[in-house]
Amino acid sequence: MKKSIVSILLSFVGIFLVLGLWAAISANVAPDLPSPLRTWEESRLYIMEPWQKRGEMDQGIGLMTAYSLLRVAKGFALALLIGTPLGFLLGSSPLFFRMFDPTIQILRPISPLAWLPLGLILFRQSEPAALFTIALCSMWPTVVNTMQGVRAIPQDYHNVAKVLRLSPWRKFTKIMLPATLPYMFSGYRLSLGIAWLVIVAAEMLTGTPGVGGFLWQEYNSLIYSHILLCILTIGIVGFILNRLMGFAETRLRAA
């Protein structure tokens, strides 16, 4: 208990030190960088009235975040829907693994900035192109972790399935899925992190409303303090998402 209070205090000390560094840099080195105070003053309206819609690209930070989160949720769901079965397939069939592993290794490091134009060509609209990019970039940890989870199932469990004469479906629901679940969730957590990274790039390039789109627009309108507002929002939301997934993961392992 005492220890956790100390940790919380220490993390605040860290935050204040970084704010101090930021203020020092904006005062002495980079005059274009708004100071923390100026950032707060110019962003106040967006933070205090987070659900206010003044125009297509001029909305409270809560609304902007909500748009981004919704988009991420869709892309992430798509990634899980494709990635999980793919992981199971690759994990259970050595043939499939040998066939597709090299392709996956090539697709995995491709940046969202490279996928997005392709998505725009394919779908001719920014929204599906963004979802396509999020799904394609974020599904790999799900694929790889699920695959490793399936591979890590002890031979004993496969023998149990044979001895009990479980049907393939029963074997899947009673053995494969529960045995793989913790691995799948580690993959989901990593995938969500990537999806949140990709959203900013996707919104910047497509100019759709959301934290990323807002950030890019304010850069173009030379309102630099709003860039910092967006950056902080992205960081905080990402942190919360990771915490939530981590929480779900530990609950799962404990169960």
């Binding site: 004993d156 469990y157 023998n159 149990v160 001895v163 009673k174 053995i175 529960p178």
Partner: peptide, 9 residues
């Protein structure tokens, strides 16, 4: 079959 290491789920 009864396994050496129980093999319960």
């Amino acid at each position: 079959m009864v396994f050496q290491n129980y093999s319960l789920l």
